[in-house]
Computed example of a mutant assay.
Amino acid sequence: MQFKTKMIPLAGAIAFAFAGTASAQEQVVKIGHVGPISGAIAHLGKDNENGARMAVDELNAKGVTLGGKKVKFELLAEDDGGDPKQGTAAAQKLVDAKVNGVVGHLNSGTTIPASKIYHDAGIPQISPSSTNPKYTQQGFNTAFRVVANDSQLGGTLGRYAADQMKAKKVAVIDDRTAYGQGVAEEFVKGAKAKGVQVVAQQYTTDKATDFNAILTAIKAKKPDTIFFGGTDAVAGPMLRQMKALGINAKFMGGDGICTGSLPQLAGDAMADGQVVCAEAGGVEEAQKKGMDDFRAAYKKKFGSDVQIYSPYTYDAVMVLAEAMKKANSADPAKYLPQLAKIKYRGVIGMIEFDAKGDMKNGTLTLYTYNGGKRTQIAVVK
């Protein structure tokens, strides 16, 4: 009995020694994710986080080796509450934790201030859902996105108005916000490039409720289409006043008006098919099966449906991992050049970045409204 009692701790010591050797051969690669896990759009933040977690779990199940060592990916998830100050605090926390890369943030308003912190630390950042062009116009070689930006969205809508809606004369209104003005300017460029005549350009604010003066001026120009750069809260009342003035023009806008709430805000002023709007993202027919498979796997894992951008966070993590594999290193300085020139076919389609870090050929989903419900028209580039 004495002999056996001595052997038990010895066996334990041997097992511990082997475990220590194994862990020494394993390297931990930390992927940060930041999104609003609290607040009004917490459901969207959690959806994004889930997509990142799904990717990390799959990478660990498959097994990845870098520099001769097996990798264990870890997700460090932070909540920015959709608030810029909280977002920069979360970014600094991830930098202090020495993450190897970041997927986030969800909102442009938190992504942009956080991006300087990641850049100063040399940490690559891929936003899955921030569309403000300013994010990639700061000259940061660490900033990337896997979704079309507002400039691409406005330009595509301008071309679509000409090619598919056969618009000849358009009037443009924007709410003078960075978003509204930017998307309207890009719409004008896209439309003019296709020979469409811009007969009027008017301005309002994001809090205005009376549009009779600008709409009366527009009516005199007889446009077949009106483009509005702004949000649904302004677009709804504007549609009401258009109807009251007898303006039957088509009404277009970006993701700011492309909501499920627009029909309620517009009351009975929207005719079926009158409104055409677009959101960043969406898959073309060739990618549909992959997206359906992702949605099914997501629901099985989390017990809920995909909201919007979880496939984009999933792909963003996979893109970071692919760049690391190509560099054979998780060191940001070593894999960043590979990330900049990556070509990766993900759930959302082919992912490549331009010199600024914007998605090449980013897709958009076009919608209209019939019977008070939003209906998909097409996925375009």
Rank of each mutant, 00 (worst) to 15 (best):
F3D: 13
K6Q: 14
I8S: 05
L10Q: 09
Q25E: 14
Q27T: 14
V29A: 08
K30R: 15
K30Y: 08
I37D: 10
S38M: 09
G45D: 09
N50K: 12
R53Y: 01
R53K: 12
A61T: 06
T65P: 06
K69R: 15
E74R: 04
L75Q: 07
E78R: 13
K98S: 10
N107W: 11
S108W: 01
T110V: 10
P113K: 02
S115T: 06
Q125H: 11
K134L: 14
T142F: 05
D150M: 07
Q152G: 08
G154N: 01
G155P: 02
A162N: 09
Q164C: 06
Q164S: 13
A167Y: 01
A167I: 10
K168N: 12
V170I: 15
A171K: 03
A171Q: 02
Y179K: 05
Y179L: 06
Q181W: 07
E185M: 11
V188I: 15
K189Q: 13
Q197W: 10
D206E: 14
A213S: 15
I214T: 08
T216M: 08
F228N: 02
G229Y: 02
A233Q: 12
V234Y: 00
M238F: 03
K243C: 00
D255A: 07
D255V: 02
G256F: 00
C258M: 02
C258V: 00
G260D: 14
A269H: 02
D272N: 14
Q274H: 08
V276S: 01
A278H: 03
G282R: 00
V283G: 03
A286T: 12
D293K: 11
F294A: 10
A296I: 04
A297F: 03
F302S: 04
Y309I: 08
S310P: 06
Y314Q: 10
M318G: 09
A327I: 07
A327C: 07
N328L: 11
P332M: 10
P337A: 09
K341G: 10
K343C: 06
N370E: 13
